[in-house]
């Protein structure tokens, strides 16, 4: 079950969309608040550090368990430190892959989110390349 990450070049051209506030602090939709809030620039909301961020398109289904589906765009940041629990892009023997990073005992592991795939211990053959910090998905055109 291969997962392939395709590089996507991006440009930060500000594009604003009106943001509708749908939630009150309590989490319930509030009809009183459904007027227009500040405009949001989706690109800069997804990518807060353009110079150190890389956009990749995901092919494959092996990360569905982590909520990353075939065709999704992910924003991978090299400016943040990887922590246990992060979804990361890693180079394993030079091959690029996406996995969940988990601490087990005193070692870090790359854990796949699909059955039948082994976890990989993070050693000198593994380089954590970047951290998946955002995801964008289209459901239909």
């Amino acid at each position: 079950m291969a997962l392939i990450l395709h590089d996507v070049t991006f440009e930060m051209v500000p594009t604003e969309v009106r943001l509708l506030t749908a939630m009150t602090p309590a989490g319930f939709p509030s009809p009183a608040q459904d007027d227009m809030e500040e405009p949001i620039d989706l690109a800069s909301w997804l990518i807060d550090h353009p110079a150190a961020s890389y956009v990749m398109r995901v092919s494959g289904h092996s990360m569905v368990g982590a909520g990353v589906a075939d065709g999704d765009m992910v924003v991978v940041s090299r400016a943040v430190e990887a922590r246990s629990g992060d979804i990361v892009v890693a180079l394993v023997h030079g091959d690029r892959t996406m996995k969940r990073l988990r601490r087990r005992g005193d070692r870090m592991w790359l854990v796949p989110e699909a059955e039948g795939l082994p976890a990989i211990i993070v050693d000198e053959d593994v380089e954590i390349w970047g951290v998946v910090v955002a995801l964008a998905r289209r459901y239909r055109t």
Partner: peptide, 21 residues
Amino acid sequence: MRVMSSNYTLYGDMQRRVLAA
């Protein structure tokens, strides 16, 4: 380079990133 495609757009992109850094 291994993790990227190689084309001129990419060089420009990487140059912008280096300058930002």
